[in-house]
C-alpha cells in the first residue's frame, strides 16, 4: 500500500481511484450491515451482520494505513468476539423470530429520534470543521503527495510507542483483562451443587420409573 517512490501522473491517478472505490464499497457494505443489525428479528443474523461491519472496519483501518490494527481487528473481533456472541446466543436460547427482540413502537421512535439527532450533530460538526480536507495530504507529517496512500504504520513503531509512552495504560489494560477473565468465570459457573445434584437425581428417578414402567 505504500507508494513513496516518485510517481508518474497516471500512477498517481490510479492510486487515487483505487482507494476511493474501496472506500465507497466498504462504506456501503458497512452502512447496510449496520442497519440490518439493528432491525433484524434474528439474533444469529445480527451476529453475522456484526461480522460484516467488523470486516468493513478492518478494511477502513487498512485504507488508513493502520495495518496492525486492521489485523488485530480481524483476530480479536471477528475471530473471538463474534464467536463469543454466537455462544451467548446459543446458551441463552434467545428465541429466534419472536417480536420481543424490540422495544415498544413508541420507544423505538424515540430511539430513532435520538440516533438521528446524534448523527446530525456529529456529522454536522465534522463537515463544518474538516470541510473537504484530504486525509492524505496531511498524513505522515505532510510527507505524502496528494492522492497517494499514507505509508502504513509498522508494528515496530506501534510497539515502540506502546512500550515507551503507554506502558502504564498497557499494564492497566492487562489487569483489566485478567479481572474480566476471572469475573466471567465466577459469573458463569454454576456454583450450587445441590441444584445440579437434585436435577441429576430427578433425571435418574425418571429413568428408573421408565424402566420399571416398561417392565410391569
Amino acid at each position: 500500500m505504500s507508494l513513496t517512490a516518485p510517481l508518474t501522473e497516471g500512477a498517481v491517478l490510479a492510486t487515487a481511484i483505487g482507494p476511493t472505490v474501496a472506500m465507497v464499497v466498504i462504506g456501503i457494505v458497512a452502512v447496510v450491515a449496520a442497519v440490518h443489525l439493528v432491525v433484524t428479528q434474528n439474533v444469529v443474523h445480527a451476529a453475522v451482520s456484526l461480522m460484516f461491519v467488523l470486516t468493513c472496519v478492518a478494511g477502513t483501518f487498512m485504507l488508513l494505513g493502520a495495518e496492525f490494527l486492521g489485523w488485530t481487528q480481524v483476530l480479536v473481533y471477528i475471530g473471538a468476539i463474534v464467536v463469543l456472541f454466537l455462544f451467548g446466543v446459543m446458551l441463552t436460547r434467545a428465541r429466534l423470530g419472536e417480536a420481543e427482540l424490540d422495544a415498544p413502537v413508541s420507544q423505538r421512535w424515540a430511539a430513532a429520534g435520538s440516533a438521528l439527532l446524534v448523527f446530525g450533530l456529529l456529522s454536522g460538526v465534522f463537515i463544518k470543521v474538516f470541510g473537504n480536507q484530504d486525509i492524505l495530504v496531511l498524513s505522515n507529517g505532510g510527507r505524502n503527495a496528494p492522492g497517494v496512500l499514507a505509508e502504513p504504520t509498522t508494528s515496530a513503531e506501534l510497539g515502540n510507542d506502546i512500550f515507551g509512552n503507554w506502558v502504564l495504560p498497557f499494564e492497566a489494560v492487562s489487569l483489566v483483562l485478567l479481572a474480566a477473565l476471572i469475573g466471567a468465570i465466577v459469573l458463569a459457573r454454576r456454583d450450587d451443587p445441590e441444584h445440579v445434584r437434585s436435577r441429576v437425581t430427578r433425571r435418574e428417578i425418571e429413568v428408573i420409573d421408565e424402566e420399571l414402567g416398561g417392565r410391569s
Binding site: A34, L37, V38, V57, S114, A115, V118, F119, L122
Partner: peptide, 9 residues
C-alpha cells in the same frame, strides 16, 4: 458517526 448513531438506536 453513522455507526455510532446506529449503535445508539
Amino acid at each position: 458517526a453513522f455507526l455510532f448513531s446506529v449503535g445508539i438506536y
